[in-house]
Design a protein around this nucleic acid. Structure first.
Length: 700
RNA sequence: GGAUCCAUAGCUCAGUUGGUUAGAGCGCGUCAUUGACAUUGACGAGGUCAGUGGUUCGAGUCCACUUGGGUCCACCA
């Protein structure tokens, strides 16, 4: 053996062999208990970021269960990531001086498809470099035809069950990206929004959005507000910059008498609260802002101005006409921004497909409360339930091309809708909706659509899956949706356990992001420290679910650990040369224990038994950090520092057999954490088996 | 405005049913070693476990409050 472990040489070689020999397939343990993890599909629009290296936790579980003899399946896949990908692609187009408007829907789709294909190759390479024992023969992509078909089927079923409806409602609309978003995709930010006190006939009201006044169809006050009771139900005459108008005053509980003057203008077409008020009092919807973000013809001479310009111009004129009583310039409020481009979102009325969430949500809450789905660490269960309880109907229409086109057709003559499982209806009068599904509508079905379209029998065998492991930041967007949709479609929960890992920040504790330029590609670190060291460093010293900062000292410590393990093997090899024989390995600790005559051997066997017991318990309870710490501690400070130092004085052959046997146990226990170095050592040792990867997990 | 998490050695963090002198990595000090170890080993310094009060025979661990930091959620015009 060389003096130093060379990870670069070992890693690619072993991964290739493992894959070729079919070790990643569950069929390697044909009679084993099914154990399945579906890889959270990375977005197929670029490289993996460093946080994805936390999937190491899944590989640990899979390798551990495979060694325990389970039919372990880790199923890989990628997500088309609708708006995310289209956004990345549009930026790319932009940098080439082009725009999405230069292409037809079909052309754009094809171009993004090609782009995604390239990304896919990079992602697959990264996952392999990390040593992940994924069954590539079962790989899936969200836009695979057979996956789409199942998603369509779900949509149709939901439509028939009355869980999908089409409605003209307010949506969060990004006038820059040209699409609506779900509530979840809106980010709120504190902004300075001057509060204008506007004269409205006999009343004064406060608003941050004077430009929407052309869309006002009423004025609201709190019904218990003594100051304004007299006006409720009356029409008031008001002066506007576009001339006189009359407005109905309504009483509504949503109005807070303490805020501003206690009077609110009601603009049902451009404000969520106002939309609700309008519905309660039968106020009409009057849209004054278009989907291009400009004022429309209801705004008179302000038509064609962008919202911001219009606001300034209108305020100017209102001041001239003395319609503004005062302005609170320093007023701060929270505005909704597009989470991709940070444009202020406009609430705009649009006809969209919605998921009625009531029954789905209640069922999801039930299975979580009844522990049919167990969430670890426990605290995330609270988060999940809290979100589910506040859930509102889910807008699943997106006005983008990159995604699954919604399988709904409108009759040009009658306007009625027909939903199919993807097939076009007969006849020329049907026109397909141009919108696509929210990405999460398809990824929310991931566990069952993958298994149902995989090898025959996979669904029956592996569903519900054992564990869903992912970063906690997509608990709401993804995990909750999977529980809802999976339970609804299959009648069974999608997974028995959910396990959350934390975020990996940069060395200074700051979130890694492309705009900050502090992202680290896992490949760089693998190159430098070796995949095993990267994996080990991520697991060691960090409790499950907690965030961590990338630590170079820790990576270095982990790399030294791989080298230490290597040198233990060299020591044994050297001893064998000196003794001019190969020491045997006995895999049965019990036999060894019964056979030994020496007290110190007996004691070391007991220590090994304890170690197996502890590590097994820690993995079973998802305490990977404790398992890693215990293995590190034992290997280095007990096995190397004490055991090996002591045995240097021994001439007993039996002692060497015990030592070597315990060393092999150590390698096996470490294999899920550090697959490459353990395999490389194992292959180099005398009397080794085919691969440590398919060896049996040590037992007491 | 709600919810939630965190505060433990110089730094980064472990410490899951409350139980003997509170742990690791890195860093630091002294010595040894280059015949497994591109190094490693031995020994060592270093903590009123944020603060206050409480429950308990016993609290870093449970409860309340305070202070400082983070995250998430929310339709305040």
């Amino acid at each position: 053996m060389d003096k130093v472990y060379n990870h670069k040489e070992a890693e690619d070689k072993h991964y290739k062999t493992w894959e070729e020999k079919g070790y990643f397939k569950p069929e390697i343990n044909p009679d084993g208990k099914p154990y399945c993890i579906i890889l959270p599909p990375p977005n197929a629009n670029g490289d993996l970021h460093f946080g994805h290296a936390m999937f190491t936790v899944e590989d640990i579980l899979i390798r551990y269960h495979r060694m325990k003899g389970d039919a372990a399946l880790w199923l890989p896949g990628t997500d088309h990531a609708g708006i995310e990908t289209q956004f990345v692609f549009e930026k790319k187009l932009q940098s080439e001086g082009q725009s999405r408007f230069d292409y037809s829907q079909e052309e754009l789709y094809q171009m993004i498809w090609d782009f995604v294909k390239q990304s896919h190759g990079k992602i697959q390479n990264q996952l392999k470099k990390l040593g992940y024992s994924l069954d590539w023969s079962r790989e899936k992509f969200t836009l695979d035809p057979e996956i789409q078909k199942l998603v369509y089927k779900t949509f149709k079923k939901m439509y028939e069950d009355g869980l999908i409806y089409r409605a003209h409602k307010l949506v969060n609309y990004c006038t820059r990206d040209g699409t609506s978003f779900s509530d979840l995709e809106v980010i709120h930010e504190e902004r300075n929004s001057p509060l204008y006190y506007i004269r409205y006939g006999p009343l004064v009201l406060a608003t941050t959005r004077p430009e929407t006044k052309f869309g006002d169809t009423g004025v609201a006050v709190n019904p218990n507000d003594e100051r304004y009771k007299q006006y409720i139900g009356k029409e008031i005459e008001i002066e506007t910059v576009l001339g006189k108008a009359s407005m109905k005053v309504v009483g509504d509980e949503a109005v807070d008498p303490e805020f501003g003057t206690g009077v609110v203008k009601v603009t049902p077409a451009h404000d969520f609260t106002d939309f609700e008020i309008g519905k309660r009092h039968d106020l009409p919807l009057k849209q004054v802002i278009g989907y291009d973000g400009k004022m429309n013809d209801h705004a008179g001479r302000f038509e064609g101005l962008y919202v911001k310009q219009a606001r300034a111009a209108i305020v100017e004129e209102m001041k001239e006409k003395n319609l503004i009583e005062k302005v609170d310039e320093g007023y701060m409020n929270r505005v909704g921004l597009c989470y991709k481009c940070k444009t202020i979102l406009e609430p705009l009325p649009l006809e969209q497909w919605f998921v009625k969430v009531d029954s789905l949500r209640n069922e999801a809450i039930r299975v979580i409360k009844e522990k049919k789905v167990k969430i670890h660490p426990q605290v995330f269960e609270t988060h999940c339930l809290q979100w589910l309880e506040n859930l509102r109907d889910w807008n699943i229409s997106r006005q983008i091309v990159w995604g699954m086109r919604i399988p709904a057709w409108k009759n040009k003559a009658t306007g009625e809708w027909m939903v199919t499982e993807g097939d076009s209806p007969e006849g020329m009068e049907w026109e397909q909706d141009t919108d696509t599904f929210d990405t999460w509508f398809s990824s929310g079905q991931w566990p069952f659509v993958t298994l149902k379209t995989s090898k025959d029998g996979d669904f029956e065998k592996f569903y519900p899956t054992a564990v869903l492991e992912t970063a906690y930041d997509i608990l709401r967007a993804w995990v909750s949706r999977m529980v809802m949709l999976g339970t609804y479609v299959t009648g069974e929960v999608p997974f028995r356990n959910v396990l959350f890992h934390g975020i990996v920040n940069d060395p200074y504790g700051k979130k890694m992001s492309k705009s900050k330029g502090n992202v680290v590609n896992p490949l760089e670190l693998i190159e430098q420290y070796g995949a095993d060291a990267v994996r080990f460093a991520l697991v060691y010293g960090n409790a499950t679910g907690n965030d961590q900062s990338l630590s170079y000292p820790k990576l270095d410590a982990a790399r030294k650990f791989t080298n230490k393990l290597w040198n233990m093997a060299r020591f044994i090899e050297m001893a064998e040369k000196d003794a001019n024989q190969e020491f045997g390995v006995n895999n049965s600790l019990r036999d060894l224990k019964e056979g030994t005559k020496l007290k110190e051997n007996y004691e070391w066997i007991e220590k090994a038994q304890n170690l197996i017991d502890e590590v097994t318990k820690y993995i079973d309870s998802y305490q990977f950090n404790l398992a890693a710490e215990r293995l590190y501690e034992f290997s280095w400070h007990e096995f190397a520092d004490i055991y090996i130092e002591d045995i240097k004085r021994s001439t007993e052959n039996e002692s060497w057999v015990v030592l070597k046997s315990i060393y092999v146990i150590l390698l096996k226990l470490l294999h899920p954490f550090m697959p490459f170095v353990t395999e490389e050592i194992y292959q180099k040792m005398s009397g080794h088996g085919e691969s440590i990867m398919i060896e049996k997990w040590p037992s007491i």
